[in-house]
Amino acid sequence: MSRFIHFVDDQQRDAEVTFSSLNPKPKIRLVLPNGKDPINLRVIKGSAETSADFLCDRLVGPLKSKDDSAELMREIELADYLIKGDPEVDMELHGKYITDSARVYVNPEFKPVFHLKQNELIYNAQRELVEERSPKVVLANISESDMVRWSGRMTPKSELAQKVLFTKKYQVKHINGLTFSFLYDLAKSLDENQALMPVGTGAKGNHPLVMSDGGKPYRAFLEGRVRGKSYCLLMHLTDQELKAPIEKQS
């Protein structure tokens, strides 16, 4: 299904249009020396039962003290078991190709856990813990009853390019003749001014966009280009200013 975005312009006219990701594909592909494509497969090379921690517990016994030398002695003892009997190799499983798999949470005994308690830890750029909280559920806010508002403000392209890093890009597309005019006119105005226009959500249009449920919030800017009667309207997303880390700034 196409994905929709619901825009409202600075004259309070709204329209739902589509968008697609601008994600350039590699121009060079890697092939075998005979020019044929290689077959890519995912293969198993270990499992919970052959992991070092599990084998240590099973063959050597639980860790008796938390001191580093006790852990080292346990691993040296495990090395003897590995040399003598290859317990780290599961002949039935290792080397098997994986075609289908699922992601699960496991406890320290590698048993799947289905009811989790989660805690979100927030660190600052100095790597200090600044907050602990329950994880927030973030929902998409760009379509249906949510609206993305055009601010009407024009910011020169070169000024913004030196300030923020546009990490994601989408192309906004019309779905009928009316939305063609809606988007073409905006693209033309942005092109003539060589400017980008901030867009946002919320009543004042100053909140960030969340493109999909569980996604990250981004600030967004529209850029328009026109060639005759055709247009290209880009939506740039950013969550980062163009600036050096704090230690490099000082």
Partner: peptide
């Protein structure tokens, strides 16, 4: 530049 968030999970 901004720090990061990580989620810890417990049974």
């Amino acid at each position: 530049v901004y720090g990061w968030a990580e989620v810890e999970s417990f049974d």
